[in-house]
Design a protein around this nucleic acid. Structure first.
Lengths: 223, 223, 223, 223
DNA sequence: TATGAATGAGCATTCATTCAT
DNA sequence: CATGAATGAATGCTCATTCAT
């Protein structure tokens, strides 16, 4: 999306009307995505019909099928988008710090302070609506979440090296990476989707507790 | 209901044939539950039709509805059953040990060695099929998982006391309990449902890594 | 329940236990009929299931089928019973009077004062629930209502003779008989089922108006 | 609805193709209504499945649900349509005459000569199929038939004034109006649905007898 | 591109009826 | 006689998807 503008100066060749149409097309795609997201989050994937989405986006059903192969693709897209956003947020936070351990902690805090607070809908999509729906989606989830796990895993290795942690079993770091994601996922789910407004406000502190717990866990493996 | 008590002194036990029928009824209920579990796990909840379940249980569709109000109730029952089994397993492991910290570790190991290995189907039901299906089910999940969280929380308090851990913020222990469940959930999911047979065999070692990580995390809060 | 004791001394021929069973059988038949009537009137024929009837009569479904061939037969029976009750009421009122015209008027009044007031459930069965349900029932309705029409027709002939009325076309009296029943039916329906409690109280006056209208109509054919 | 007016000045007419599609849509709606009418009248409401209707209209089941919310709505529509047709017929006949009493008689005759003869299906729908089916429909019947009753009542008042009839009790005229409709209903039912072809032919004479009876009844209330 | 009418397979659920005990 | 578990055909309805305009 952010990429669009860069292209404009490189492609002055398009006629103004063609450009407008392109803009409108991209906009409609976005509108549909947002409509679907809202409905999936608030009504649930199965309870949302394609007609609902079309209505909310103020287009016809046919148009939905022009932009997306089918209903599942909408969820798939939203899911990938969600995980991508998350990876970007975590990555930025990690990179900004000087020492890996600081970056790791910052990423953890960013998960709660930025991802959860700014994109609650994406939390719902990634951790709830995209679960247990279909085989195809399950496979996609596996693939996409694997990337996230790898990110965490790599960061973890950097942290370990910096802190002088050596894992007896090479798989241990992998398990820890998976576990950390599990913490984030469940804590976010609990306090964002199963708690009252008050707890949502406290998500910052809650996140810090979770991160402390994680950092302590890592200490366990110190030589 | 009110009539029963009057009869009790005359009929302290049921007739043999009545008992057999009762046994058969319970058996059929169980058969249906198992048929549904198998299909939900292997085909997915939405991809399984009530007819499928009836066929697998070798009964008619009507019979399914004689024992269960509707399809959702079957999943609900399986979900509750799964969480209950898990709580029993964790509880037993925790109780058996002398020191809370040993019990806590034992419970963690039991999660992987007993629950995941002996009840892989329940893992799938509890952490996958019961997610994102309907509002009713979501509410039930919230309630039932809350009990589990409370269990872990209480155990955690015992461990903390034993180890001399004091949480600055009283909610921290709660967050940690939620996080621990997150670790279990995600690690189990990853290695039981997204990995090959080889990894499933290693679930014991994997579990131990996860538990080590957790115990280390707790150390963080030591005074 | 209260009826039991009275019958015992009149039929000493049967063994006491056989008598009790007979009594119970008749009673159960009656109970079922009343349960069905209540439910048909209050929930509607199609909205009432055989299980509903069994529950209300405090017997099992199987028992309903022991006493009645099927659900339709219950309605059929209730319908016939209703029309029969009506015929008896009208007949008695008509007979009691000395002059046919007085009897005719008395019967009309009895329709509202006795049948409608004492048997509102039967009104609902006869004029509403038994309509438009099935071909079999429709045929039964035709047959049973024909008898009622004949009654009215015969009474009408007596009245005509007494008042010196001669119908040009022999079928006219028949048409009038049918029409009179139509008046009763619709007026009863309107004020018993579509009006508030206040109007139901006024059924007596309302009935008298209807009867006046009818008697006036008959006058039309006077020589 | 409100939007239309704004567009009217810009689009005083639809494009030919849009008009054709609109026409086709209306036509299909009509076809479905007629298919349902035929089947409800000949097989009965409950014995007719939505698939039956779709088959007869040569469309798919889904199409039925595109045009009607559910099966009940079809019957509802047919019922309203029937009563509306009847009101128009009676109204026209009444208006055409110079004196109210002539109009009243003409309306009565039109009921049999026009409504019954030209719309026998509607007679079946209004007086048979729409009876005793569901609570929703019953309420609709009450409301719609009330309008018809009011028509007759108003006509009756005009006649009374013209003939110098004064009702002691103001509700009497209402009762008479209801009764008159009862006559029409039952006579039509009897001779159209419960009699052989020969009687149907005679419906004209039969109707006249009924009307004579009614007019005579009115005379009763003359001062 | 956009529309929205049409499709029809698919499914959950009901319920009258039966029959072994 | 009574029971109530079991049956399974029947049906209303949904909804993702298509396609002519």
């Amino acid at each position: 999306m952010a990429v669009k503008k860069e292209k404009q100066d490189r492609e002055p060749s398009l006629s103004p009307s063609a450009m407008r149409r392109l803009r409108e097309k991209e906009q409609r795609y976005e509108t549909l995505l947002r409509a679907a997201e809202y409905l999936f989050v608030h009504k649930g994937y199965h309870e949302t019909s394609v007609e609902n989405i079309a209505d909310r986006a103020e287009v016809s059903v046919g148009t939905v099928y022009f932009y997306f192969k089918n209903k599942e693709e909408l969820l798939l897209k939203l899911f990938s988008e969600g995980v991508h956003t998350l990876r970007v947020i975590l990555g930025k936070a990690f990179m900004k710090a000087e020492k890996p351990e600081d970056g790791f902690r910052a990423a953890g805090i960013a998960f709660f302070d930025v991802f959860c607070k700014k994109h609650p809908g994406k939390v719902a999509i990634v951790f709830k609506e995209a679960v247990g729906q279909s085989q195809l989606l399950e496979e996609a989830r596996r693939v996409v979440l694997q990337k996230l796990t790898d990110d965490v895993y790599n960061a973890l290795l950097a942290v370990s090296e910096s802190l002088g942690i050596v894992y007896t079993n090479p798989r241990t770091a992998k398990v820890v990476a998976v576990g950390i994601l599990g913490i984030y996922e469940r804590v976010a789910y609990q306090y964002l989707m199963w708690s009252d407004e008050h707890d949502k406000k406290e998500l910052g502190t809650i996140g810090r507790d979770a991160v402390d717990f994680i950092m302590g866990g890592l200490g366990e493996f110190k030589a």
